[in-house]
């Protein structure tokens, strides 16, 4: 079983113990490590939930003058109108951005499928839909644009929070919220850059089945970042 004989002049098919490519194993180890990173961030957010000594708060109305919080604005009777801060988290808008990110994962799946199928002939009578499913460029663009849209939502969210009086310095909620979601946003940004790099390769020489692994690994990362957002959306936004 001498492996030097297995070397082809064109393709370096290294012998691997598991038969999987090295990069596939490395990305899973990386994702395991990233789980601990986000677990630390999410745990800190949850530990600090309700510990801020001043508002604004994620789910409660807050009267700045008396520094009291309540479930409704009416419960803050006697508070001057300009001193009332509404709950910061905007669940409808974030639901929309979550939907966008989920759809980006779908586009990513289709991008990988398109790359894998690139060499197969189109079936007889193939329509526009079939041709679209073969277009890796379309789905990579779609994924990147949806990811960028999610980032746009996040930029809007951050800006509006700052206008409503919550910055990273305001209280424990602000510090832990912006750091956690900011880290996630940075991961999405890295993912978008990764996707644009794949697109650059696609335009330069075309991505085909032999590149499926490249796209597969980017996809694993992308889905992971998406799954982390599901955890953040549930734990931070939905659970009061």
């Amino acid at each position: 079983m001498a492996t030097d004989a297995a070397h082809d002049a064109h393709e370096h098919h290294h012998y691997t113990t598991t038969g999987l490519d090295h990069k596939k194993i490395a990305i899973w180890a990386f994702i395991g490590s990233e789980c601990m990173l986000f677990m630390s961030l999410i745990s800190t957010y949850l530990i600090y939930k309700g510990k801020s000594v001043v508002g604004p708060w994620p789910h409660e109305f807050w009267c700045k003058a008396t520094n009291t919080a309540a479930a409704t604005a009416e419960a803050l009777a006697g508070c001057p109108a300009d001193q009332i801060y509404k709950p910061i988290l905007n669940i409808p808008v974030t639901s929309a951005s979550t939907f966008v990110l989920l759809m980006s994962s779908l586009a990513m799946v289709l991008a990988l499928a398109a790359v894998e199928m690139k060499d197969q002939p189109l079936p007889a009578g193939a329509g526009l839909g079939d041709r679209m499913l073969r277009s890796s460029k379309l789905w990579l663009w779609m994924t990147a644009i949806l990811g960028a849209t999610f980032l746009g939502f996040q930029a809007y969210e951050f800006t509006s929070f700052v206008h409503e009086g919550l910055t990273i310095k305001t209280n424990l909620f602000g510090s832990s919220f912006f750091t956690l979601t900011g880290f996630h946003g940075a991961h999405v940004t890295a993912g978008v850059i990764w996707l644009l790099t794949l697109l650059a390769i696609d335009y330069k020489r075309g991505l085909g089945p032999k590149d499926a692994l490249k796209v597969d690994i980017a996809a694993l990362y992308w889905h992971f970042v998406d799954v982390v957002w599901i955890a953040i959306f549930t734990l931070i936004y939905l659970i009061q």
């Binding site: 530990i47 510990k51 000594v53 990273i168 209280n171 510090s175 750091t179």
Partner: peptide, 20 residues
């Protein structure tokens, strides 16, 4: 967290702000 506290004024380790 410590870096952000030191450089950007976050409150992760700020006891007066309610930090643990």
């Amino acid at each position: 967290f410590l870096q952000f506290d030191r450089f950007f004024g976050t409150q992760f380790y700020e006891i007066a702000a309610g930090a643990d």
